[in-house]
Amino acid sequence: MFAYIVRRLLYAIPILIGVNLLTFTLFFVVNTPDDMAVSQLGEKYVTPEAIENWKKKNGYDKPLFVNADASGTSQLTDTIFFNKSVRLFAFDFGRSESGRDITTDVSTRMWPSLAVALPTFIVGIGVNITIALMVVMFHATRLDRGAVFLFVALMSISYLFYIIGGQYLVAKSWRLVPVSGFVPEGQVWRFLVLPVMVGVIAGIGAGARWYRTLFLEEANQDYVRTARAKGCSELTILFKHILPNAMIPILTGVVVLIPTLFMGSLLIESFFGIPGLGSYMLDAINSQDFAIVRSMVFIGSILYILGLILTDISYTLADPRVRLS
């Protein structure tokens, strides 16, 4: 098991190098530092000196890959590629274009993101599984068909509609909670209730439909027929036979998401004014702060790979037939 995890972690390295090369190509080869300087400075004030100054200030005045002027190892280290990309591996994110330390920003903004994403995730799974189980109990009836139609309809509604509608109804018309905002301590829950609720409701359509399919797949298995023939009650079949067996596909789909919860949700956070990583990314995109975008891409891919490894481990825990080797 331990050896497996170590090997998987080693496999992650070429993938991260790939991610790094891809972002590097996007940010420095397709779009050279000169172009960036022009778009950051604005077209009016572009002089060759201004561009040089901007590049020097932000550390873009070096060659891309190999610095022929330097000597020894600094031929490779005193380059843009090393300074801007390789350093990410040491979790040294450097400074954003506006001069803020990205590492500090990320570590403080992670917690508000998690405060919204984690409850949404847990409550969402609970609600979706409950609804799906109820629907499965009425399988092949009018109620089941109606529910499936309802799920598809819920899926077809834009996420923005859920957010805007939720804010309008709950916060503006009924005045139950504030429309948006966040305080680090005290009545945090007042600011969290609405985003979590919106997140859960928006996920019901796709989630419950997916769980229903998983449950039905198990319900067609022979062991269910046997259990029924033995005279088990439908409730026992549902909770003792179908649910535990359906946990395996549920785990694969769900565990991979857990690490990415740290990244937060772009839309929810920006609409509800939560100072998490999601709104951090959005601000970075809007202000074209490529240093932040690059760091977030790197963090995101690490978390995704972590999720894949966790999925494999959870497999062995849930299904004794699976052995990692």
Partner: peptide, 29 residues
Amino acid sequence: QYLYITLSSIPGILLIAASVLLFQVYIDI
């Protein structure tokens, strides 16, 4: 396999946003 794992490990929305922004810069210039 390496290609698609690498690609899918990058948060989709960031990749899209970054590419679109870069194209925008290109058009502006």
